[in-house]
């Protein structure tokens, strides 16, 4: 993994975000610990899909924990915090997965948050067509961001932009959120211009990738809803709860 690299030309906001970034090893250990706990009322070994659902739930819990430590977000009242997370939960999950694949750096397999590798040939053979298509489309974005040389500094800044991507009219504290949006955009622009001067439109290209993250997250939600309708989702699933929550 890349070290937390500061140095000249790294805006203060990005430096702070790098400090807040959880260690992948710690997240992995916590989630593995949770998955090894027996499920209440269902002592049998859960099916692979059930495990994936619990893994996604636990990943989202880590994301909520990150958001709660983020500047500006932690100053907001809980109502605004919920509105922001209800807007972007699936995008944050998709982007987290995408960045893990960029670090993984292998075209033929995907790396799960637990550290397990799954061959794409296995996905093709064992996952249904909806999940397979979602995985392939995600891999295209991974390649695109890899070609753009997305680095850790840009990743943390984009993640922060996703968290605050909602129109402020839906929030109580307009001022604080608008200020965060403007500062994060300015930080990303300054950083890309300073560190990638040969690639003048990197800032715009990164923002365009967020449009694809949004589209992928919509597709992922359609997949979850399909599984929910087929009674295939575990009970008390956090993602299904997020899916069913009233949107702004």
């Amino acid at each position: 993994p890349e070290p937390f690299s500061g140095g000249p030309g790294v805006p203060e906001l990005i430096l702070q975000l790098l400090q807040l970034e959880p260690e992948e090893e710690q997240v992995r250990a916590r989630i593995l610990g949770c998955l090894q706990e027996p499920t209440k009322g269902r002592p049998d070994q859960p099916a692979p899909f059930g495990l994936l659902c619990r893994m996604a739930d636990q990943t989202f819990i880590s994301i909520v924990d990150w958001a709660r430590r983020c500047m500006v977000f932690k100053e907001l009242e809980v109502a605004d915090q919920m509105t922001l997370l209800q807007n972007c939960w699936s995008e944050l999950l998709v982007f987290d997965h995408v960045y893990r694949q960029i670090q993984h750096g292998k075209d033929a397999s995907i790396l799960l948050v637990t550290g397990q590798e799954v061959e794409l040939s296995t996905v093709a053979a064992q996952a249904g067509s909806m999940l397979h298509s979602l995985v392939l489309r995600t891999q295209e974005l991974v390649l695109q961001l890899h070609a753009l040389q997305l680095d850790r500094q840009e990743f943390v800044c984009l993640k922060f932009l996703i968290l605050f991507s909602l129109d402020v009219k839906f929030l109580n504290n307009h001022g604080l959120v608008k200020d965060a949006q403007e500062k994060a955009n300015a930080a990303l622009l300054d950083y890309t211009l300073c560190h990638y001067p040969h690639c003048g439109d990197k800032f715009q290209q990164l923002l365009l990738c967020l449009v694809e993250v949004r589209a992928l997250s919509m597709q992922a939600k359609e997949y979850l809803y399909h599984k929910h309708l087929g009674n295939e989702m575990p009970r008390n699933n956090l993602l299904i709860e997020m899916l069913q929550a009233k949107q702004t």
């Binding site: 819990i61 909520v64 924990d65 709660r68 430590r69 809980v78 915090q81 919920m82 997370l85 209800q86 008390n236 956090l238 299904i240 709860e241 997020m242 069913q244 929550a245 009233k246």
Partner: peptide, 23 residues
């Protein structure tokens, strides 16, 4: 059943509870 009043996701609300310190 997993939603509180006004369609609020109860688990998320619990995770954001001020009484729960972030890790």
């Amino acid at each position: 059943p997993c939603q509180g009043a006004e369609g609020r996701p109860a688990i998320l609300y619990a995770l954001l509870s001020p009484s729960l310190e972030p890790h």
